[in-house]
Design a protein around this nucleic acid. Structure first.
Lengths: 343, 343
DNA sequence: CCAATTTTAGGGACCGCTCCCATGAAACAG
DNA sequence: CTGTTTCATGGGAGCGGTCCCTAAAATTGG
């Protein structure tokens, strides 16, 4: 202790422990990393002293020495809806089990921010990233960098088609098909679709599911009833009002996601019409809110936990293996139609 | 380039840049860190080569050398409600502006997990932490460690009374008082309160606000109507049913938070009673959902963005200053009663 | 034109740890 | 009793930067 007595505000290092016990730092390091070749007595002495001096290992130094950050990054468009926090929570659990930290960055649906965030992840030498792109992302150079540098990347939800890497998605086509077919079978004839930006594969797939269901039941698709919007909340009112005031208005609306569906319901109600009597509404995702609103929303549920867990597992699979052995599976998880009062 | 041609899978370091340009790594470092004393020509050559070789700085090495991680930690009880993601988003914005990374950890309302997470933050040498404790946290040793090591800590929402550090809270007492007074003024006579765990200061303050409002209007507080619960969703049904079946049931319920209030409404409706006719319900926080449910929930809104921004600012204030200059302000932000149909 | 400054650049210790290699001692086998 | 393993430990070179201290070069001033 005599050595340490004059050192204030100095973090205890393995060197301090070593000096105190008159052994080398190599031996201390061996004890701390669980290396077998250490005499039990020595091990105990080190551990006891570490405990006594409240030694705290310096992950930064370890990261530099071992050349791995033990950190994974998550890049998502936003964190305020119910979907992403659920996926994140699941990913974090898996990461904790693997001894990894997680850094999360929201792109706020901005391509610029996404690029910046990707750069930050790179600077911080993440061992892998899980990403869901923004609605604006058309160029993928900032994500391809990960591939180029041999850093595992996994997409979920909003994936990049031109990159061949593991992905976790749900069967959007099937989910949309089921939702629209349900509307048809409950007697709806004119079903509108509030679609998402065509840059996103989910928008296209859900649109295709919608079209296929119509086709199967011999209902001609009316372009007037298909509106693609950019997820900006203000627009919903405009589009819904527009649909309502059509000469031949829809008797149902299939929305690209739950937040849109929920807003749609509010607008319809504001117009003095009722859901589902006048217009039925169906959403996609089964957000936490959806069961609680009035009327409760019929929606296509996604297995959020499973999505997160699967994405994390695909990532850790890669992290653990040599890049030559990487597989690029695309996991398609099943959705489930939850029928509630809105349809 | 001749040197680099044989090096595969080797990250470009400042040493590589230096060798390539026949200058020292010190000079390269100076350029990269923006140090003024570098010849403009040299600066340009370095920058150009860095660009050309796609040099990427290694934050881990920088962190080790500068002894700061440029990372702050957020420890929260959960991430699935609407409150925390909003606060997090605000904190992250501030952090980004300051050039800091954020690592987030959910305690899942478990004391054990919170302790583990605090340890992880310490291992990773965060430059500061922002925390909201779990309902189980009674011992604060794991958080006092930060103080002891001179790492700034800021509490928000669920704070630790026994630690003298900066805190950001809302005026829970005032908010609760206003909510309950509103119920009284709208004619309610028997107002129940679903309170939180008494370990949390917010529970106590909101309870006191409730009691004070009753007292002001000469309504005796009935212990039968005050139930303290532990935030476990299953219990809500039990308590609400119990209240409804009382010989002298309440005509209003003031819930500790919105999720509780929302569940309360569902249970009341399931019992064939209506809100607000039979029983009025008021919540706390103004979650995103609250305006959408049926009936829309009267609630005490918290300035979530402001909470996050303030917490972050208090943290960075400390990070930038020597610990001898640290202040320990407790910022009390104003709440706002939002009256909707549930009352 | 030379001394005094100011710029610009290089050298090298250091941050805290890992991990390979070397070494001596103890244990084992023949 | 000696040669070969195995075990326990020490030594030291990285990991990729920062930053202090010098030294040489360029600029300034009298």
């Amino acid at each position: 202790m005599i050595y340490l007595i004059y050192m204030k505000n100095h973090q205890i290092t393995i060197f301090d422990l070593a000096r105190e016990l008159n052994i080398s730092k190599s031996t201390v390091s061996r004890v701390l990393t669980g290396h077998p070749n250490v005499h039990p007595d020595t091990r105990k002495r080190v551990l006891d002293l570490a405990e006594k001096l409240d030694y705290q290992r310096n992950m930064i130094a370890i990261q530099l020495a071992t050349q791995q950050s033990k950190t994974i990054g998550i890049i998502i468009p936003e964190i305020l809806s119910s979907y992403f926090p659920h996926v994140i929570a699941a990913i974090q659990e898996e990461a904790r089990n693997e001894g990894y930290n997680v850094i999360i960055s929201q792109s706020n649906e901005s391509y610029e921010t996404e690029v910046t965030n990707a750069k930050v992840m790179l600077d911080n030498r993440v061992d892998g990233v899980i990403v869901s792109i923004t609605k604006e992302t058309l160029n993928f150079d900032h994500l391809k960098v990960f591939q180029k540098k041999g850093i595992p990347i996994v997409f979920f939800n909003r994936v990049c088609n031109e990159m061949v890497v593991p992905k976790v998605i749900v069967d959007d086509y099937e989910g949309a098909f089921g939702a629209v077919e349900h509307l048809i079978l409950s007697g709806r004839k004119r079903i509108a679709h509030l679609s998402g930006p065509s840059s996103l594969a989910i928008s296209v797939k859900r649109l295709n599911g919608y079209l296929a269901a119509l086709k199967k039941h011999n209902i001609p698709a009316d372009p007037e009833l298909i509106i693609s919007y950019d997820f900006s909340k203000e627009k919903i009112a405009i589009y819904v009002n527009h649909l309502i005031n059509l000469a031949n208005p829809p008797d149902a609306i299939f929305a690209i996601n739950d937040p849109t569906a929920i807003d749609t319901i509010q607008i319809i109600k504001k117009n003095g019409l009722s859901v589902p009597e006048d217009i039925a509404v169906v959403g996609f995702s089964d957000d936490y809110v959806s069961a609680l609103i009035e009327p409760p929303l019929t929606t296509v549920a996604q297995p959020v936990r499973e999505i997160g867990i699967t994405a994390a597992q695909l990532l850790f699979d890669q992290i653990k293996k040599d890049s030559s052995q990487w597989k690029t599976p695309v996991k398609v998880l099943k959705t489930k139609l939850i029928i509630r009062k809105s349809s």
